[in-house]
């Protein structure tokens, strides 16, 4: 079965468009598989998604249940990672916190990637004043350090997960627009686009059906690399008290609370620190590997 697929996908003389597409995907996968760091990253990400997804089944305790008799307990057989200042099980909170973190990442990406793609392709395809206006707009958003702008937005909106998502999304779309525009410029004047235009396709149809799909691979790389930075920004907002609010088990917010006992009960802060580190490291490894595979110009 697998061997059949392999032979079919790697056939140099593909007979259908589908076969060629799968061949390309399979080759990317093979190249990615050869990169150990990328595979480690992929493994950690899959593991985290599973853990977060199955949190209700896996978590030994309810993340909100307090046990004041047993607060700030050291890691033990009962509580593998110890308990926090209200006696809540840290491992359970970490697992549920993973849901929040991954939820934020997915929400931001779902909002940002289509907007960036739309702005970039429209600017690139139409050119002229449309291009100038849209690109000036991205310049303005790029003129702030990301976290500072997100902080200011959240301050204006009211701290919370939704505002954090919105604020991160508002600061994250310009690079996507830039990339999509650059890709659009390279294909805009090619012959197949001219051919489609001559058959009477409207500019919108050309952008949607013929230009946008070509921008997707580079956006995918950017998304993967960006996820780490989204996680870090979300955690930083939580840490500064501007993102998810306690008692929510968001990792950054957990660290912010645990900061107070870091001198004596350091393990309370350590495990969410390691969780953030692992996940964002994993996304960076995978993104780096994907970039090497999809964009050979880099090396």
């Amino acid at each position: 079965m697998l061997a059949d697929f392999r032979a079919w996908a790697l056939d140099d003389l593909a007979t259908s468009r589908r076969q060629a597409a799968w061949g390309r995907r399979y080759r990317i996968w093979l190249a990615l598989k050869a990169n150990p760091l990328a595979m480690i990253g992929l493994f950690i990400i899959v593991l985290c998604v599973l853990l977060a997804f199955l949190a209700p089944l896996l978590a030994p305790y309810d993340p909100a249940i307090q046990d004041l008799e047993n607060r700030l307990a050291r890691p033990s057989a009962d509580h593998l990672l110890g308990t926090d200042e209200l006696g809540r099980d840290i491992l359970s909170r970490l697992l549920y916190g993973g849901r929040i973190t991954l939820g934020i990442v997915v929400a931001v990406v779902v909002m940002v990637a289509p907007v960036g793609l739309a702005v970039g392709t429209i600017a690139g395809y139409f050119g002229g004043w449309v291009d100038k206006t849209l690109m000036r707009l991205t310049d303005v958003f790029l003129a702030f350090p990301r976290l500072i702008l997100a902080l200011a937005f959240v301050a204006a909106l009211n701290p919370g997960v939704q505002s954090a998502i919105l604020a991160i999304a508002l600061t994250a779309w310009p690079p996507y627009a830039r990339i999509a525009r650059a890709e659009t410029l390279t294909v805009r004047n090619s012959e197949f686009i001219e051919a489609v235009a001559m058959t009477g396709a409207s500019p919108w149809r050309i952008i949607l059906r013929h230009v946008a799909p070509l921008c997707v691979p580079s956006l995918v790389v950017r998304v993967t690399l960006d996820m780490a930075s989204i996680i870090i920004t979300a955690a930083s907002l939580g840490f500064l008290g501007m993102g998810a609010q306690p008692p929510s088990p968001e990792w950054g917010a957990m660290i912010a609370t645990a900061k107070r006992f870091i001198l004596d009960q350091w393990w309370v802060a350590l495990s969410p620190c390691i969780a953030i580190l692992l996940v964002s490291l994993a996304f960076n490894f995978l993104g780096d590997g994907l970039r090497d595979v999809l964009d050979p110009k880099q090396d």
Partner: peptide, 13 residues
């Protein structure tokens, strides 16, 4: 990559 992946506050703590 590790330096890039750690939030500054984690490093600082």
């Amino acid at each position: 990559i590790a330096g890039h992946s750690v939030p500054v506050f984690v490093l600082a703590l």
